[in-house]
Design a protein around this nucleic acid. Structure first.
Length: 256
DNA sequence: ATGGCTCCTAAGAGGAGA
């Protein structure tokens, strides 16, 4: 079974990239973030024609998540449980495929909106941690994957790519990510590649990709039994070299 | 380089992104 996550930075701009990537890689599930349109604007038909079912949570202009699947799935949630927001942003969708629960998340960046913006990032993390704890207690098999907007350690960004005050490397952000690991979740890419320099994002500016000034911020976290099935995990770096790419690349795992 | 691009909306620049 193959499961991938990809922040596409506008699905309408990246429709052909995603379609071509699906055909080349044939994942069972593709988790998208930053689709940047309302659900009715999502180009579902082109993916359905390629054999994928689309479940979309959208809003105007910003955010937006979607899960594309070869098989129909049950949608369990369209916002992150435990976030008390009457109009939650389009940052979470959760589906069930067989006995596997899969949450697709787009965590707030946390650099905009001042102190309140950063606080919102930490609140999303807190709700995610509580939700993960509940699922573990219930003995469920699950994956929480997407754009976490955190470089977990200093190994996860190129020296000089970010100032130490950036919300992606702030100690509070990293502590929140570590708390998910301490619950018993496995960072799929790092578990299989403990010592490699691996990035999933390169800024559009200043030739960041060419200079390999990247970040590792897109992650797949696995519950214990799912982690036992993990056989591969890697970003598709080549996608960043395409014409008019997203600034993120897909990250895919394989489960036995 | 204190955002150097690329999205969005909307018809002007400006905000968000990381």
């Amino acid at each position: 079974m193959k499961i991938a996550t990809w922040n596409v930075n506008s699905i309408r701009q990246r429709q052909t990239h995603v379609l071509d990537w699906l055909k080349r890689n044939e994942p069972d599930l593709l988790l998208l973030q930053e689709t940047k349109c309302e659900a009715h604007q999502f180009p579902a038909q082109v993916f359905e024609d390629a054999g994928y079912v689309c479940n979309v949570v959208g809003q105007k202009s910003y955010n937006g998540v979607a899960i594309l699947s070869r098989q129909p799935v049950d949608v369990l949630a369209r916002s992150l449980p435990g976030l008390n927001d009457p109009e939650p942003p389009a940052r979470y969708i959760e589906v069930r495929l067989g006995t596997l629960t899969v949450g697709d998340l787009y965590l707030p960046n946390g650099n905009s909106g001042g102190a309140a913006g950063f606080q919102g990032k930490l609140e999303f993390f807190d709700a995610l941690e509580r939700h993960a704890a509940v699922m573990l207690r219930e003995g469920r098999d699950f994956i929480l994957a997407g754009d976490y907007n955190v470089c977990p350690t200093d190994r996860d960004f190129a020296p000089g790519a970010l100032p130490p005050t950036d919300a992606l490397v702030r100690p509070e952000s990293r502590a929140a990510f570590r708390r998910l690991l301490w619950l018993g979740l496995t960072d799929a890419v790092r578990a299989l590649h403990p010592d490699e320099t691996i990035y999933t994002f390169w800024d559009y500016q200043a030739g960041a990709f060419h200079r390999d000034l990247g970040l590792r911020i897109d992650h797949l976290l696995l519950s214990p039994r799912v982690a036992e099935r993990l056989t591969s995990a890697a970003p598709d770096r080549e996608e960043r070299a395409m014409q008019q790419p997203s600034d993120h690349v897909p990250v895919m795992i394989t489960l036995d």
